[in-house]
Design a protein around this nucleic acid. Structure first.
Lengths: 344, 344
DNA sequence: AGGTACGATGCAAACGTTCGCATCCACTCG
DNA sequence: CGAGTGGATGCGAACGTTTGCATCGTACCT
């Protein structure tokens, strides 16, 4: 193993100079610096991370805690976070909490001492986990807690956009198929939809759920949606939308003919379905990147002076084949009968 | 931060005893050990990983290098590896090489010094990467190299199973839509299919490709498949199958009526499609687990006495709606005309 | 020309752990 | 009863890096 000593000898300087030349180049005279870097490259020197950590206190690595790595949603965040961490020369410890609050807290506790900070995605036990990290910097993704930095999608804007789209198509009664009861994003989406409905004025909202955020949840919700009289539906995520569409078809009805469907997340499947799914997309990779940036910036500062700054990522409506004007009905409210001519 | 010294003071022993009590319990008298562990728990002591690494040489962490974390295939492997690493008390560094051979080698080089071993998935530059890890233990996943331990799927058996299935349905001419040229698994699948065709005797194989392992690759391959006269097709992976089905439909033909399709990997989408996709499944999480186990076992041993042991994981044929008997043809080889009555 | 100031570099301590070796004690055996 | 034995524990060095402080030389100012 080649150490600072070897490089120092090769460059004809002391180990302090080697260390400085590599970690704070501006504090070393240019010619010396060049000799050192040349020697280091020549010998293939790689600083021993353990030693730096031990001495300097910074770990050169950050932690990422996600509920389920196999879920493409979190995999995308992980990919973004990993890419940015690499760009910044940081290692990335990944832990999958398997949706288990205890495991999550345990993971945070284990990660905290050996990292410079933690990215905590969609936490299942925020309070306990935040406590477990004993003051270490943290960034929440897809969750907000007062006083903690976070990266979130602009669910409110997304829901408004979805509702505007449906209203423009002529829908006046829209259902929402909610996700898990304790889900933070479900809460945000509900409030976002309510606000949007109030703002648009003439769209009625039917809230359903909670439902499991899986295909099965969509199956379960479909009949409720149909019975509700809604002509369009927004679902908690794309999988629910998939299940919903399947069940609606089984009932002999058509999507988007009899029911327009808007999913959430723009999951992998969304564009592969027939019809391809209209959905709300957030750039999850950039969410991962933003979280790492946020963390790095925070680690640079003394501590909590940035406080609860929240990065809000835009949400984009991706219009595909699963939304269309409602079928004109004869027995309904005569006001809403005609195909709409007024756009926003 | 609570250190061995604190624990030692609390337990009334020396720091050496604390260290021993926690890392080699059998070398410490039971009552002492109990006092130490009690004190450690009481104070919430967590050994400083950096310090142990520095002194003891073992990192307490392993590295995982994958070409694309957002690909559910690798995400599943990562999940399995992570779970097992956690069970064994190891940290897991994850690096996404973004399909870039240089980045992969770089990642391995960076990871090697700070880990106890590396799991290298579907390497894009094996030789260089193996060289970069300078003797550090490694386990290859989804790849084989003489003299290196690996975890691979039994592609041969899988292909045989797929071909048997298609033959039992009555297919006698089967196409294979290959993946990327340099893909190891593509090679294994091709040789597996050839062997299976020889073994079954009366099935003709049409090899196509290379094609991109994406939906677009399926689009590109579809017309070739139809022109080949094959009544069934096996694709490099499920995404290719998706594209293939789409294009076949555009051509006005039906799946599985006019063409039976077998995918590979049992990706997330496979069961969501209409028709759901018949595909070959490997338990990728257990692949991740096996790789970590293999690594841990190897790290325990002196070095390379286990050598090139390869863990071969079973491949299972999941029969869904995309395969069916071929449509009886009038203008074809009269021998193959009738719906088959002979199974196996 | 002498004093000052500052930039560049070297020296050495410290980070928290592990482990070879030394020490100590109790027990056993001759 | 004394020497030998071995198990349990303590001592202290070492791992490779970072960094506060000291030192040295040079350049600038008066």
């Amino acid at each position: 193993m080649v150490t600072v000593h070897d490089v120092a000898r090769a460059a004809g300087v002391s180990i302090s100079t080697v260390s400085r030349a590599l970690t704070m180049p501006e504090r070393v005279a240019a010619p010396t610096r060049d000799r050192v870097t040349a020697a280091a490259r020549e010998l293939g020197y790689r600083p021993n991370r353990a030693a730096s950590v031990l001495r300097a206190g910074r770990a050169g690595a950050i932690g990422l805690v996600v509920p389920d790595l196999a879920n493409p949603y979190f995999a995308a965040i992980a990919k973004g976070a990993q890419a940015r961490a690499r760009e910044r020369g940081l290692g990335l410890f990944v832990v999958d909490s398997d949706e288990d609050p205890d495991l999550e807290t345990e993971a945070v506790a284990g990660l905290a001492p050996q990292t410079d900070g933690i990215v905590l995605c969609s936490p299942r036990a925020v309070e306990r986990s935040v406590e477990a990290l004993e003051g270490r910097p943290v960034v929440l993704v897809n969750h907000e807690v007062d006083g903690l930095p976070s990266v979130v999608a602009d669910h409110g804007a997304g829901m408004l956009r979805a509702l505007e789209h449906l209203r423009a198509l002529g829908h006046r009664r829209v259902a929402y198929v909610g996700g898990p009861e304790r889900s933070w994003s479900d809460g945000r989406r509900r409030t976002g939809l309510r606000a949007a409905a109030v703002r648009l004025g003439d769209v009625e909202l039917v809230e359903l759920g909670p439902h499991r955020p899986q295909v099965a949840g969509g199956h379960a919700a479909a009949d409720l949606v149909l019975a509700s009289g809604a002509t369009a539906v927004v679902t908690f995520n794309d999988l629910v939308a998939v299940g919903l569409v399947e069940r609606v078809r089984v009932r002999g009805l058509d999507v988007p003919g009899d029911l327009s469907v808007v999913g959430c997340d723009d999951a992998y499947v969304a564009e592969l379905l027939a019809p391809p799914l209209t959905t709300l997309r957030t750039d999850l990779r950039s969410a991962g990147r933003a979280a790492v940036d946020h963390l790095a910036a925070r680690a640079g500062r003394s501590g909590h002076d940035l406080g609860d700054a929240a990065v809000v990522l835009p949400v984009e409506l991706v219009v595909r084949g699963s939304t269309a004007p409602p079928r004109p009905t004869l027995h309904d409210d005569p006001d809403d009968d005609a195909v709409p001519t007024e756009d926003t």
